[in-house]
Each structure stands twice: as C-alpha cells, then as structure tokens.
Amino acid sequence: MTNARLSLGSSWLLFPVSWAILLFLIFPTVVVVVLSFSPSIFLDFPPKSLSLKWFYELADDPSWLNSGLFSLKIAFLTTIVSLIAGTAAAIAVVRSNLPGKQLFMACVLIPLIVPHIVVAIAVYLQFAQLGLVGNTLGFVLVHAALTVPYVILMVSAALQRLPVTYEMAALNLGATRQQCFRKITLPLITPAVLGSGVLVFVTSFDESVVSYFLSGVTQKTITRRLFEEIDYNISPIIAAASTAFIIITVGLMAMLTIFRRRES
C-alpha cells in the first residue's frame, strides 16, 4: 500500500495543493511554447488560432541561425574537452593513492559554488587582454572549466561502484595497462561518461551569464542574443526561438533521464 507509506494529514487536502504548485512550475514553459504558435503579435493567451508564422520569420533571419550554430559548436567542443579532462581526472583520483585526493575533490566543487557573475567578469578581465573575447576558444575554455566538475563527480561515482577486481584480473592475465583501460574500464564506465556528456552539452548551451560578458559584437551565442532581445522587446519571435531552444535542451535531458532510469 503506497498510501500508507508516509502518513501525512489528509492526502485529499495535500495533493490538490501539490498539483497546483506543479502547475505553477510547468506554466511558464507551456505559455512560451504555446505563444510561439500564435499568429498574433499581441501575446494573447490562449491564442485564438495557431500558425507557424514566427518560425518562418525565425528561419528567415540568418542572425538567429548563426548564433544558434555558434552555441552548438561551443557546446560540442566543450563536451569533448570536458569529457577527456574530467574522465582522466576521475580515473586518476579513484584508482591511485595520490596524496591530497580529498583536497582535489573539494576544490573541484568550487566552480559549482562561486557565482557565475564573478567568474564571468573575472574571466572577461583576463581574456580581453589575451584576445579571447568573442572567440570559440575562449568560450570553450570557460565552459569546460565550469562543467568539468559534473564529469568528475559522475564518472568517479561510476568507478567507485565498479569492483577493482575486474581490472586486477585483466592485469594479472597479462593485459597491458592500455589494453585493460580500453577493454575493461572504458566500456564499463561508458554510460556514466555519455550521461555526463549530455549534461555538459546542455549546460554549455544553456549558459548565459559568462556568454553575456564574453560575446563579441559579431560572434554572439544564442543566450546572449536572447538576453539582448528580451531586454529590448518581447516579440513573439523570441517565443519561437525559445521553443526551438527548449526542444533541444528538454529533449536531450529527457533522453538522458529515461536512459539512466532504465540502467538502474
């Protein structure tokens, strides 16, 4: 009996309240998506009819497409850098007895706690002098630094669950370290690596504060573009761009969640 599990007052009183709060949570996303299909320039909700007008306008404006592709490129390169650096570090931390392992793992958490506004302006101050503002390398470096903690946390958790005896057996049977890594360790941690990769990709694509300060005049990320547009006007074309954005991020994260649930 699931209902007897955590007896708490009258569930008939509680559950409508819970559902109302869930409605509050989901409502803004729903409104933006629905409005993007409205033909009216006035943001009428619910819309009186449906059309793809704003999506055609979005597709006709190359600047939206350009910043979208720029963001996707940054997210893709960030994922590669972050996965390689993070997976290597996770393996080194779990499978060695380096002094200061605990300290390293504590330091890894710092990017998750320091507010992004501080990182954004600090990086902007240095990168402006190095010519790294508004270019791909600059974005990839910051986004990789901000996302590498996720990779280390997820992959090291997977490694800790993985019995070291598998690797020991391979090494005792004469496998070289490289063979052992390629044939035993890597295949077993692949789900965690791919999972953290999706998270890194979406985090980089979503990232708006650092992107706001690091964007140049010509090379703008999609988040910087949205930031500027939302601050000046609230045209329904933003709703259409947002809907495209939401489909990418929610789609990827939903895939990841379903995949991980099936794993466990």
Partner: peptide
C-alpha cells in the same frame, strides 16, 4: 596487481582538469 595507477601517470591525468580550474577560474 592492486589495480592502482602509478603516481606519475595519475598526476599527468589530473593535469588538464587542474590547469582548467586554476587557469580559467
């Protein structure tokens, strides 16, 4: 045989992350 990585190799593997976190953040 205990599945442990040599110290030098593990230091090398931590390097890219350390460089990113120290250099960029």
């Amino acid at each position: 045989m205990r599945g442990e990585l040599p110290k030098r190799l593990s230091l090398l593997m931590i390097m890219p992350t350390a460089a990113l976190l120290i250099g960029v953040i």
